[in-house]
Write a protein that binds this DNA or RNA. Structure first.
Lengths: 161, 161
DNA sequence: TACCGATTGCACAGATTGACCAGCACTTTC
DNA sequence: GAAAGTGCTGGTCAATCTGTGCAATCGGTA
């Protein structure tokens, strides 16, 4: 499924956990907290990023806090003769589309979109459906965030083999 | 909707974009690239994080690369007499549940879960459905990632007012 | 005109980084 | 059993960056 998946050990998991909790602490401080040599922390981080287990350390922008308070999941049904890629290209041009996946089941594509308001959501959906290759959209609005996106528990689970 | 949303300007957007592209470059280098004073970059970053527009700079772990190559979206239907919170508590204990939202429409909760394989996905779903408050689960498997999660385009859009 | 927030340019001490190196313990290979 | 390879440790070094404070400047506003 993945190109090459990495087997994490307990130190990797603690490293990621600590880094997730306090991202700006730096390699030296990490080595102190984990009670290992600085070189070890550097080596581990290099390994994790080189193998792709850690994609990056980008700033996590919260859409709700920059004016996009409405989040929704939209299932798209596409015309088969338009490829997924063409539709993906169309979706990629819309900034409110945060991610998109092809899926099993009754739809073809599931995407996450945000908007400034419910009225604004309509505008975005119109923009999405305006493309020929998309036959119809089915919209689900997210009301409350029960569990914010997280990967730390998963990391711990992965390190326990 | 949000507590207080921040109005970004063009400099904020460029800052976030640059930081997303090269997260490890540091404040000084940022100020050089953006052709502004270092203090300005620091002030902007402080403002963005203080107001909550930037949640953090945590390591972005890629589940697929640590052994969880299967991703899916699961819609849950819950028994009304069990509150959402109780169910959320149950879900929170399962590391494979990466996020969860209450939603409009035919389901009550939408969550994103990952697993090591399709067979493993069954195990996770069984674990989810094992809880009394959950009546049934409807699973959609994500096949391909057309657009990976992104916020930079949104940031740019937000800065153009 | 006077005020205010934002930005600039500058300086300082202290801390961190990247790059090394030798030593040690452990595992695999010959 | 010996040799080679790997990963971790603890240390050094110069170069760089950070956090902080300050005075001056700028643009918009009361």
């Amino acid at each position: 499924m993945a190109e090459q998946s990495v087997q994490l050990d307990e130190l990797d998991a603690r490293l990621v956990e600590l880094l997730a909790a306090e991202p700006r602490i730096g390699v030296l401080e990490l080595s102190r907290r984990l009670a290992v040599a600085r070189g070890t922390v550097q080596a581990r981080l290099d390994k994790l990023t080189a193998r792709g287990a850690i994609k990056g350390f980008g700033p996590e922008v919260v859409p709700a806090m920059i004016g996009f308070g409405v989040m929704s999941f939209v299932t798209l049904e596409i015309s088969q003769r338009y490829g997924h890629d063409a539709v993906a290209g169309h979706l990629a041009e819309i900034p409110e589309v945060l991610e998109a996946h092809t899926i099993t089941g009754s739809g073809d594509i599931l995407c996450r979109i945000v908007a400034r308001s419910n009225a604004d959501l309509q505008r975005v959906i119109d923009q999405i459906v305006g493309y020929e290759g998309i036959r119809r959209a089915h919209t689900i609005i997210a009301l409350a965030e029960l569990i914010p996106y997280r990967t730390v528990p998963l990391t711990k689970a992965a390190s326990r083999i």
